[in-house]
């Protein structure tokens, strides 16, 4: 058996979980309620990964697998649920829509990456950058958090610096090799 170095397998599962768990739960929560049900469903996906000998050639194919599996599980669960209501009907409809699926993943991936990029920041900076990304002006942030305008400016520029560093060195070149 040939083992390639960049193959993703069981031993990486914890890290995969750490990276994608919340995003997958939030994706499921677009169709399912309550949240505990969504968590349960996503946990099953990971249990499935532990049980089977799945390997993925790269991170993108792993991501595709995760989102698609959650999508299918949601679909099956709602389809076979006894309580048929309008909410469920809408959920089924939106789960069947491939274009919507792409959009939802796009949205979830944006939130996931932003979350992970600012997770390491101290609470205050997190709050400021979240409000700023939400579109609030410095003065509004200062008022909302009851802190000085100057403090907002300082902390915000420091936070953006860290955030930018994380996204700047993206491997554009590698991407073009992949497509």
């Amino acid at each position: 058996m040939v083992v390639e170095e960049n193959i993703i397998g069981k031993s990486d599962l914890r890290q995969i979980f750490d990276t994608y768990y919340e995003a997958l739960v939030q994706y499921a929560s677009r169709f399912l309620f309550p949240l505990s049900e969504c968590e349960d469903l996503v946990q099953d996906v990971f249990v499935g990964l532990l049980e089977k000998e799945n390997t993925f050639s790269d991170e993108v194919s792993l991501k595709v697998y995760l989102y698609k599996t959650v999508r299918n599980k949601c679909y099956n669960l709602i389809k076979h649920n006894k309580v048929k209501n309008k909410y469920a009907e809408n959920a089924v409809q939106s789960l069947e829509d491939d274009n919507l699926f792409l959009r939802q993943i796009l949205e979830e991936e944006i939130v996931r990456q932003l979350y992970q990029a600012i997770e390491c920041l101290p609470d205050r900076k997190k709050q400021i950058i979240a409000l700023s990304l939400k579109g609030l002006k410095n003065a509004e942030i200062a008022e909302r958090l009851e802190i000085k305008l100057q403090t907002v400016k300082t902390l915000k520029s420091q936070s953006y610096k860290i955030l930018r560093e994380q996204f700047q060195d993206l491997d554009t070149v590698i991407y073009f090799l992949l497509v």
Binding site: E22, Q26, S29, V111, L114, Y115, L133, K134, G135
Partner: peptide
């Protein structure tokens, strides 16, 4: 992005 930021709370 402005509309998606609320999702950060759900993550945490």
């Amino acid at each position: 992005i402005e509309e998606l930021i609320g999702g950060l709370d759900s993550y945490s």
